[in-house]
């Protein structure tokens, strides 16, 4: 449904961040993108949602298609209208607006009042805490509630694909579990296609059907989430298992041990 073919993304016309990255997001599935800081996960999402322009980045090669249509250079608002919605890293709710106003902005492109109302009810059903706090200024919500709001706001546009960028960031384990459940429920109950970017690989591989591991702007590993969970490299570098040979670990300089598969 959503295909990224061999894209290159360049920032400030000379910093090459994505170096020929390809991936596929299947309709109705949860796809996870894993990788460390700077691997290019967020850049990939922004290339898909069309937000690179604000950061002086652009897709210089390759193409992104969505539902058979080439969207590589489409304006961001038209991609939202087409059903692609990104929940940005760090939640990025509108702090000075109330919870309800935030939701209304999420449904900005929808002009049908009844649809807006029913989607708002849907968001409140998934996140009852938001209903309680509907008239509060969003900036005063707790981190978990802000994340709920960010996801609820994304639902307001009636998306087909939701891209979640680090939804577990800065949340306690209990809340991570809660977000995890919500993501699964949205996928099962609403049939949402989800592209999940995470550093928390345990969380991501627990919910995802398929996963890609990114490093240095390229996909270095991909496979069904089930297989990735048991992959030795992933276990060692992302799930914290496998590195049992402590003696040898310390004898090697840490930067030389830094993960590399080549």
């Amino acid at each position: 449904m959503l295909t990224v073919e061999n894209i290159e993304v360049v920032f400030n016309s000379y910093v090459l961040v994505l170096k020929g990255l390809s991936l596929q997001v299947r309709s109705g599935a949860i796809t996870a993108l894993l990788g460390t800081n700077g691997a290019g996960k967020t850049t990939t999402l922004k290339a898909i949602s069309g937000l690179l322009g604000t950061e002086d980045g652009e897709v210089t090669r390759g193409r992104i298609t969505y539902g058979g249509e080439d969207i590589t250079h489409m304006a961001a608002d038209r991609r939202v209208a087409a059903g692609l919605m990104q929940v940005m890293e760090g939640r990025r709710i509108f702090q000075d607006l109330t919870v309800e106003e935030n939701l209304r902005i999420g449904g900005y492109l929808e002009r049908d009042g009844r649809k807006i109302a029913s989607r708002r009810e849907l968001a409140y059903d998934y996140f009852p805490r938001l209903r309680e706090r509907r008239n509060q200024i969003a900036g005063f919500l707790s981190g978990g509630e802000q994340q709920m709001l960010a996801i609820g706001r994304a639902l307001m546009s009636g998306p087909q694909v939701v891209m979640l960028d680090e939804p577990s960031m800065g949340l306690s384990p209990v809340l991570v579990q809660e977000v995890c459940d919500i993501v699964l429920r949205l996928n099962r109950e609403q049939g949402l296609t989800i592209l999940l970017v995470e550093q928390n690989a345990r969380f991501a591989l627990a919910v995802a059907d398929y996963g890609y591991v990114l490093e240095d702007g390229k996909v270095v590993l991909e496979g069904a989430a089930r297989d990735l969970r048991h992959d030795q490299n992933v276990q060692e570098f992302y799930l914290g298992a496998g590195a049992n040979d402590r003696g040898r670990f310390s004898s090697v300089k840490w930067y030389r041990r830094k993960k590399r598969w080549v």
Binding site: D77, V80, M88, F94, Q95, D96, G106, Y108
Partner: peptide, 16 residues
């Protein structure tokens, strides 16, 4: 107002 608070996030909401 949303644009005033966070331009990029506003863009991600489909605001031109």
């Amino acid at each position: 107002r949303a644009t005033a608070t966070d331009q990029q996030a506003a863009m991600a909401m489909g605001i031109d």
